[in-house]
């Protein structure tokens, strides 16, 4: 193997190390940034953006301090799987789902759009934050 060839290979290795270091560094720096939402936050966007409002973000942590799981998941009929609940504003205004409390009595009413429809445009529905289930490949 000639000297020039060796030099060429070394140069290649060096460049490989440098490029992978840069890539890893960027990954490491970016990783914590994208979504740092709370564990158990749920995005509702099946209808929201189609209807011209922001997606809804439901914080489990906030509600859990005030209500046991059973209140919404047994009394109010929310199924325990993100995406299984079809929640329409018409139902809420009639006092179903969120509307059981969000009625200007226990909590703010359905006219306060911006307090629930708080999500960034383009969010996908689902449980966000922490290690949501969906298979080992997700971690």
């Amino acid at each position: 193997m000639g000297y020039n060839q060796q030099k060429h290979i070394r140069h290649g290795i060096r460049r490989y190390v440098r490029v992978s270091a840069i890539a890893l560094t960027m990954l490491m720096l970016l990783a914590p940034f994208p979504i740092r939402a709370e564990f158990g936050d749920v995005v509702f966007n099946k209808h929201s953006e189609k209807e011209g409002v922001r997606p809804v973000i439901f914080p489990h942590w906030f509600h859990r301090i005030r209500f046991q799981c059973k209140v919404c998941h047994s009394e109010l009929g929310f199924k325990m799987r993100a995406g299984d609940n079809v929640v329409l504003m018409s139902d809420i205004i009639e006092g179903k789902f969120c509307g059981m409390c969000h009625n200007d009595n226990i909590a703010w009413g359905a006219d306060r759009c911006d307090l629930c429809h708080t999500g960034r445009p383009g969010l996908q529905s689902g449980v966000i934050g922490g290690a949501s289930t969906g298979g080992p490949g997700r971690w």
Partner: peptide, 15 residues
Amino acid sequence: QDGLHDPSNTALNQL
């Protein structure tokens, strides 16, 4: 700043 809420929503500071 959590990447989920829209920072341009002026009602965020009420939450």
